[in-house]
Amino acid sequence: MRRVVLPALAVVLAALAVYPTVASGYGVRAMLQLFMWVALAGSWNLISGLTGYVSFGHIAFFGAGAYATALAIARWHWPWPVAALAGGVAACLLALVIGYPCLRLKGPYFAISMLGLNEVLRALVSYFEGLTGGGSGLSLPTLEATIPIYYAMGAVAVAVTALAYAIITSRFGLRLMTIREDEVAAEAMGIDTARHKLAAFLLSAAGPGIVGGLFARDQGFIEPLSTFALVMTITMIVMVLFGGKGTVWGPVLGAVVLFVSQELVWARFPYVHQLLFGAIIVAVVLLMPRGVLGVLQQRYRLPRTI
């Protein structure tokens, strides 16, 4: 298995590395967005796929990262790579503040608290106009950096996937899964579930924070509605559920399949496409709760790392 997978991975990564030298501007932009979705879906999987604590507001970390980065660039003139990392740090801090109280709650409470968090952050960003530009948005100085951002975004996508691999193959990852399977039993076996959940939550916030920062730099302009968009949380969730939650490659598969179909067909029918997302969630939950890879994994007794 390893002997096939590793060379194949190397080939794909090499192809992606040389891609900008041969591709059109549209191609690079599309791939950059795909990287973003891989990173977002993979991050959501770390908390929700592994521990079963569903975050309905994970895009809040993306938004927090985007605003932190944009402020660092526009107001304090930081170089963008540093600013994007600061976006990741900001998202982790937010996760710490929110996660400490909210992760003590059982599943549904946590889920809705996260939904609320996103709404509240959007309201706060709109309110503090002096700092954030409020509803009219925040512009960054112009800078042509699509290619470097392509590589940065790709690096985050790879990092998130590698992190997922490292976690899922570790004792830490198994313990996160025990929280999903039976939290009471996990505690009775001596597993400090609160600390494990918080750690997973922080790790799951870092990726979206950095990606949000790169997104802000790439767009050159952000405003609250499109930065704290519920539809983006929905998209991450659909990608992970479709591909297979709790697996390494499920979020990647989900991101590729759904992003490509979104680009090819659905983008022309915005509401139909979201309606389909809703329908996919319902269908996956009812008919294929493990997702595509989850089903293969169970049927052919494959490891979680496929």
């Binding site: 899964m177 999903r180 399977e181 039976d182 039993a185 505690e187 009775a188 076996m189 001596g190």
Partner: peptide
């Protein structure tokens, strides 16, 4: 509970509580 478990208390449950997907 996890601290008490680490102090050397093991338990089983009335209805089985294993981790089915492990």
């Amino acid at each position: 509970p996890w601290r008490i478990a680490r102090l050397g208390v093991g338990r089983t449950f009335q209805t089985i509580r294993i981790f089915p997907e492990l």
